[in-house]
């Protein structure tokens, strides 16, 4: 197990070096003549008006919440799926009930109009 995760750890480090390499090479090769106008925020030539941090729709947040619930649900279901082969029928039904309760949650969110993009 430790060897497996050592591989992942080394992979993260090397996968970080690979994209860093072209950026460094580009820094050496590419010209660098910055000026104020070039470095302005790009809005197709128009000057930006006001702050970037405009207030966002609350809808993004609601989708995030629904996603979080399902994310945790599936995290519970993965060990159940791995153990599936040795589980008796009633244990499988327990998992199904677990899914159905959350499907009820999805149905509730749907009926309440939380899934509408308006």
């Amino acid at each position: 197990m430790e060897q497996n995760w050592l591989f992942i750890g080394v992979f993260v480090a090397i996968a970080g070096v690979f994209p860093l390499l072209p950026i460094v090479i580009a820094r050496i090769l590419a010209p660098s003549k910055p000026n104020h106008i070039k470095l302005e925020t790009y809005e197709c030539g128009m000057e930006t008006v006001g702050d970037t941090w405009v207030q966002f729709k609350v809808q993004y947040y609601i989708y995030g919440l629904v996603f979080l619930i399902f994310d945790i649900e599936t995290a519970f279901l993965y060990p159940w799926a791995v153990a599936y082969g040795v589980l008796p029928m009633f244990a499988v039904i327990e998992g199904v009930i677990f899914i159905l309760i959350l499907a009820g949650g999805l149905f509730y969110a749907w009926r309440k109009g939380a899934l509408e993009w308006s």
């Binding site: 072209p22 950026i23 090479i25 580009a26 820094r27 090769l29 590419a30 010209p31 660098s32 003549k33 910055p34 104020h36 070039k38 470095l39 302005e40 925020t41 790009y42 970037t52």
Partner: peptide, 12 residues
């Protein structure tokens, strides 16, 4: 080509 393109980082 991409390697020799100027890499600009916006001021903000």
């Amino acid at each position: 080509k991409l390697l020799t393109k100027e890499d600009s980082i916006p001021e903000k």
